[in-house]
Write a protein that binds this DNA or RNA. Structure first.
Lengths: 209, 209
DNA sequence: GCAATACGTTAACAAAGGATAAGAAAAAAT
DNA sequence: ATTTTTTCTTATCCTTTGTTAACGTATTGC
């Protein structure tokens, strides 16, 4: 169990301020429970049949969330540097994860365990802040999920892809296309066709103008 | 602003124990901020362009969540008796709701406002319990959403419908089919075809056995 | 450097879903 | 009770997607 450096802890704490402000005393208690975790490309952070016992903060690298169905991997989400991630449902409910998570690049994380979190929730010096923190994270995720369900119900795969280009262009460079296809709810072959359609209609527009 | 009866308050409190246990003192403070709301069939609880200011508990009746796209309503979710509901993203972030909510039947709710919630979160007698309550609700919703995204990515509309029959049969009796179709991510016409396919394969099985 | 693997595109065919319209059945309104 | 409206089904046609397989190109590992 390697401890994070002061620099790494600062990086983590700076990102957390989006959700909650910890006092220095609180932060020391939290920091003492954090540890580093390195994951090589393609290694698993969580396997889709085990209970997820930790939450990770990505110091560097990128992770992929995926479901396995009939032996096929279906990518579901992607997280990058400075994002907090876990298989939340499994972590929270203590049930086997239906999601697997692996690394798309060699990655380094700061992690804390479920037991650590319970310890902080039970400690009166940190319990209130941690309850609040947990609520903020959960509420943030709800908003993301509402958007995602909205896109599945109201948009075609082509519309979803176009929106991705506009709103999350960094996804395009760092995520293999067949992963992105799953994320959009189609096969890799279909995404390739969608891209072709878009390119063709773009070049027609150029000709016309 | 009509106040709930003692009986109605008991009904509400009993359901809340799934998420949090309030002391009697806390409950009195909360209950004093609750009010009744009646919604006639097809009336709106929230309109999809306004900020949602309240959370409701369904004493009786049923509500429908839907998006509006190009003037078309796309049903997204349904809530029944003893469920807590709101347009959470709008309520939490104070932004216009992208979801509209209306009543499928004449319904009666116990509601509280955003300001009431803030008041309870600021009151040291209730703040801890309310933070915890908020976290529990949010975490519950995350689990629901994870399931829902899972179903969109890994299942066909037909598989989703079959699973609905098994896992939420009460949906079938109380929700019009064209609403259900939206919920499953297809058109009403397509759901009708899916139903036909299923019935046909069921009767073939009967013949064979 | 070379072989093996992974990735993206394309083609051909089958299956499914969307759009539209028409009609039957059920529910609601008068 | 009888209109009127809503809901559900069916048919037709067209578009899109899934499936499978082939091919070229990057990447990776050795």
């Amino acid at each position: 169990m390697q401890s994070p450096t002061a620099l790494q802890l600062r990086q983590f704490r700076a990102q957390l301020t989006k959700f909650v402000e910890f006092s220095d005393e609180q932060w020391d208690l939290i920091a003492s429970l954090l540890y580093l975790k390195s994951i090589k490309k393609k290694e698993l952070f969580v396997s889709g049949d085990k209970v997820c016992n930790e939450v990770g903060f990505i110091l560097q690298g990128s992770l992929r969330f995926f479901f396995v169905k009939d032996g096929i991997e279906l990518s579901n989400y992607f997280c990058f540097q400075n994002e907090l991630m876990s298989s939340y449902r499994s972590f929270l409910k203590r049930t086997p994860s239906i999601i697997s998570i692996d690394a798309m690049e060699d990655s380094q994380l700061i992690c804390f365990t479920y037991d650590s979190l319970q310890q902080l929730l039970a400690d009166e010096r940190t319990s209130f802040a941690m309850e609040h923190f947990g609520r903020m994270i959960a509420e943030y995720l709800i908003c993301c999920y509402e958007e995602r369900v909205f896109s599945f119900l109201t948009q075609t795969p082509e519309e979803r892809y176009k929106r991705l280009i506009d709103e999350q262009p960094h996804f395009l460079n760092r995520i293999p296309q067949h992963y992105l296809a799953n994320y959009l709810g189609v096969t890799a072959v279909s995404l390739s066709r969608i891209r072709k359609r878009i390119h063709e209609s773009r070049s027609k527009q150029k000709l016309a103008s």
